Each structure stands twice: as structure tokens, then as C-alpha cells.
Simulated assay, not measured.
Amino acid sequence: MPFGEQPAYLRVAGDLRQKIVDGSLPPHTRLPSQARIRQQYGVSDTVALEARKVLMAEGLVEGRSGSGTYVRERPVPRRLARSGYQPEGESTPFRQEQADERIKGTWESCSEQEGASPSVAERLEIEPGERVMRTRYVYRADGEPAMLSTSWEPLAITGRTPVMLPEEGPLAGRGVVERMAAIDVIVDNVLEEVCARPGLAEETAALGGVPGHPVMVVIRTFFASGRPVETADLVVPADRYRIAYHMPVR
């Protein structure tokens, strides 16, 4: 194949992709069959099949059992604003993670103690196996699952205090900064790293997505005087969210 020339299946996928993007193949339209693609583009069955696989991997089409392959509805990405902790106003976990005040947010959570895994221990600067409180959240925006979060807090800091359980006690449902301040731990810094990866089956099932489709992960750690006091993984569907950072210039 000459340098720069695309394989046939990518050329076919590219043409079909353009038709999806420009509306020639609108959402919920059935994608041309493998035989029709073969005939229309003058390609083999193998090329037609690979072109369809590309569109499915890109999340543009979906298979429906016993019916065929259809163009997916393209979601309008929402903005996930990251601007640091704001001491004014409400400081619930949802507001901490989703700063768009126009969205009505709710969450479900479950907390339990466990031994820190090596990766969590490294992030919290503790020994593997040390006890931590793990809390899993499912955030919902306007009733739809929008984000997953798993957080870990060292029980050496919060154990046997009123804030040991993030969703119980006098500060139930408040943010990390406020809860830590109640036990005289002053959070003064936060580190966030953003990466993308294929979604795990249980993640995409909880978020209403397709297994293997990409998710964005915000890896966040709160610090107090240089000591990590909480670390969390925030997972959002890459096709439904954009992560926006608003940082002051000093």
C-alpha cells in the first residue's frame, strides 16, 4: 500500500462516519447491511465487516439483537467544572464534583473498611494493608447516572471520630474539606490528574454506557500540610462530559 493511503475498511468507515456526522444517517437509522456496504463500495465482506467494527468501537453505532446495527443518539457533552474548593455556599459531595449549579444532583453511597491496596497506599503515603474507609458513590444528574467516585480515607486520621463515615454523623454528606476541618485537619492543597481508558464493564453498566467505550478518570488527592488525607477516582463517560478547569492567575 502506498505511503499515506488508508486501508479500504478505514475509507469505508470514514465515509459512513461523515454521513452520521452530517445527518445523512440520523440517530436510530439502521446502518446499511454488510451486503449493501459491499455492493455500494465495491469491497469484500471482510472490509465491510471491519468498517462496521470501527464505527461500533467509536461509539457511533450500536448493535440491537435480532434487528441490526443502528446509529446511536449523540449526547451533548456536559461540562464538568473543576475549580477547587469553594468555602462559600453548599459543599456536598455532588457540588464538590459537579459545579454546574443548573443541574439537580443526587447521589448514592456505600462505605466500608478495607486494607489499602498497594496503589491506594502509595497515593495516601501509608503502608499497604493499613485500614482505610472506602466509599463508593453513584452521582445522578437530573435522575440519570452521570459519574462514579471511589474515595479512600486513612482511618489513622478519621477513625473513631465523628467523621469516620462520610455519609453518617453530624457532617453527613458534606465535602472532604469541611469534614476534615471538624477534626482539626486543615486541607490546604489538592492534586488532580486526568487520564482516559476503556471503561470497565461494571462502570459502563452503572453509567448506562457500552463496555469498552472510553471513560475519563480524575485521580484526586487532598492534602493537609503535605499529608494525603483522602484520595479518589472520579469516572465519567468520555462521550458525555468535558472536564473544564478554572484556575486563578496569581
Rank of each mutant, 00 (worst) to 15 (best):
Q98R: 11
E62I: 02
A146W: 10
A146D: 13
P211N: 08
A181V: 10
V235D: 01
T92W: 11
R242H: 15
G143H: 14
D15K: 11
P27F: 06
E192C: 13
P32K: 03
K19I: 00
E203T: 03
A156N: 03
A244H: 15
L16Y: 10
A205S: 06
Q96S: 03
L200N: 13
G89K: 07
M147A: 07
L16I: 07
P77D: 13
S149W: 08
T69R: 00
R30Y: 04
Q39L: 07
L31A: 00
V210I: 15
S119Y: 13
D239E: 10
A116R: 10
V61L: 03
C195N: 04
V185M: 12
P118Q: 06
G89P: 08
T221V: 14
Q39R: 14
Y41C: 03
G4L: 13
A244M: 15
E90A: 07
M180R: 00
R174H: 06
P75R: 13
R220L: 08
P87W: 07
V47H: 01
I186V: 09
L207W: 07
D239W: 06
R197S: 02
L80E: 05
V138T: 13
I126V: 09
G63H: 08
S67P: 10
V190Y: 10
R140S: 09
S111L: 13
E178R: 05
S44M: 02
Q40G: 11
Y85H: 01
G14E: 00
P154F: 04
I37A: 11
E167A: 06
F222N: 07
H213C: 02
A51R: 01
T161H: 03
L80P: 04
Y241C: 10
L55I: 03
G23T: 06
V187I: 08
Y241I: 12
A99S: 00
L171M: 08
I37N: 09
F223K: 10
V12L: 06
P32D: 01
P198V: 00
L124D: 05
E50M: 05
E130L: 06
E112F: 15
A224T: 07
G212C: 05
A51S: 08
Q39K: 05
A141D: 06
D22V: 03
S151L: 04
R102D: 08
R38P: 05
A181C: 08
T46V: 13
E193M: 14
V120K: 04
L148H: 10
L165V: 00
S151T: 06
G169R: 11
T135H: 07
A172G: 02
L191E: 14
E153H: 13
R174S: 08
V235E: 05
T158Q: 02
G159I: 11
G89Q: 06
A141R: 02
M180C: 07
V47Y: 00
R227P: 05
Y70M: 06
P211A: 04
A8D: 04
A121P: 14
L124F: 03
A156W: 05
F3Y: 15
P128H: 14
G169K: 13
G66R: 01
L234K: 09
A141N: 14
S65H: 10
A13M: 01
V235G: 04
G212W: 02
L200G: 02
K19V: 12
W152F: 14
V71P: 06
